[in-house]
Every structure is written in structure tokens, then in C-alpha cells.
Design a protein around this nucleic acid. Structure first.
Lengths: 103, 103
DNA sequence: TGATTATATGATTAAATGCTCATATAGTAT
DNA sequence: ATACTATATGAGCATTTAATCATATAATCA
């Protein structure tokens, strides 16, 4: 496999490597949301949220559309949910195995 | 979902967010490998590789066993391959859609 | 025992990331 | 036009990450 491929994958995972960004993804699970909804939901600074959204968009994970003064973000490819869910399952599985080894 | 869950997921993805670490994963796809094989394969400094391996192990993605003076690393849960493959597919899909939009 | 080899780790530095405050931009309304 | 609101972005700072060099540790061998 070409080394550029690894870089592309690493970039994708870097976009997912922050808890606020993961939280945004789950919040968008049922469909697009306006920034004006996302900010109060996260209880983070507006400028900070804006940057997290930009990071996810840069990675191609989110896309956005403008409606008047509002901006709506949505998940570009639902496969991201398979990825984050699998990651959680894997972490749980490994943790369970560790527990089993100790008992 | 609890916020600790997002942190756990983010930690997992942080471990995957470097091209060298992704490359290590694919190299271990067929089974465990000694550090003495991994280092020349990657053509990176030994100390650097050691830290990347440690990062993957800390995240529970790899485990290791010692045999004499050698250390063998292996993938702890094969699901990680579903994750990295899905990520690549998703990036490709989004890229194709962008191309389609432009043509 | 001392020498050699494999791997890990401490210290340093450079670069990247995340957060905050302040400000810019753009759309809407008066 | 001015004022107001929603969102994005620049600048500064603190923290984290990655790379490198040097050294430590531990196993093996002569």
C-alpha cells in the first residue's frame, strides 16, 4: 500500500481524535443541525465549536450549507458511525478481556 | 451517552492518527512481528518506532510478548482492520462524490 | 566476568493543537 | 444607512506530540 494512503487515513483519524468532535457526530446522527443549536448543546465557546466543525469538514466528515445567516452541518458519509461504534466496541472488548485475565 | 465514552473513543482515534502507526497495523495483519523486523521495515529510528509501538499498546490496539531479548507485537483485536479499512473507503467515497459534483 | 545485541526511556527541541479573547464578515431588519 | 445576530477567523498562549540523540536496561554469549 502506498504511504500516501496511510497519511490519508491518519488525517481522518486525527479529525476524530477529540471528544468534542465525537460528541458533535453523535449529535448529528438524526440529521443536520444549525450551529446555533450545536453551540448551546455542547456548552463550549462558539469560536471553539466553529473550529471543531471546521476540522471535521476539512476531513470530509461533515459538510455544511448556509441558509440566510445560519449554517447547517451534516454528516457527509454515514459510515463514520460504523467507525466510531466499532472503536467503542473494540475498546470495551479489550477491557473485558483484560478483566477476564485478572479473575 | 456519557462524556467519558467520547473521551475513550477520542483516545483510540488519537492512537490511529499517525501514518507510521497505521503502517505498523497493516504490517501486523498476518500475525505478530518482532521489533527487529518492524524497525527495518519502517526505515524509521528505532527509538521512534518503539514509541509508536508503545502508543498503540497503551491504547489497547497492540499487545506484546517477550521472547529472550526480542519483543513481539501483535494486534489485540482484529476489528481495528475494519475500522482502518472503513476509514479509507469513506475518504475515497467522499472524494468520488466531490469529483462527480464537479463534472 | 565483560562484550554485544535488542528494546525502552530521559531530555531536548520543533511543530502542531486547542483554547480564549477580540474582531471580521455577512445576512437581516429597522 | 445603522444596528443586530450568526458564524468564522486572527493573535496569543499553554499544552501536547513527534523526532532525535544519548543512555539505560535486560538478555545472551564468549
Amino acid at each position: 500500500m502506498k504511504s500516501e494512503v496511510f497519511e490519508v487515513q491518519a488525517e481522518y483519524f486525527k479529525a476524530l481524535s477529540h471528544p468534542v468532535r465525537i460528541k458533535i457526530l453523535y449529535y448529528l446522527k438524526k440529521g443536520e443541525r444549525c450551529v446555533c443549536e450545536i453551540v448551546p448543546y455542547l456548552k463550549e465557546e462558539q469560536s471553539n465549536v466553529s473550529r471543531h466543525l471546521a476540522a471535521l469538514k476539512r476531513a470530509g466528515i461533515l459538510s455544511s450549507r448556509k441558509e440566510g445567516v445560519s449554517v447547517y452541518y451534516r454528516v457527509e458519509d454515514e459510515n463514520v458511525y460504523k467507525i466510531v461504534d466499532l472503536a467503542l466496541c473494540s475498546v470495551k472488548k479489550v477491557a473485558r478481556e483484560k478483566v477476564a485475565l485478572l479473575s
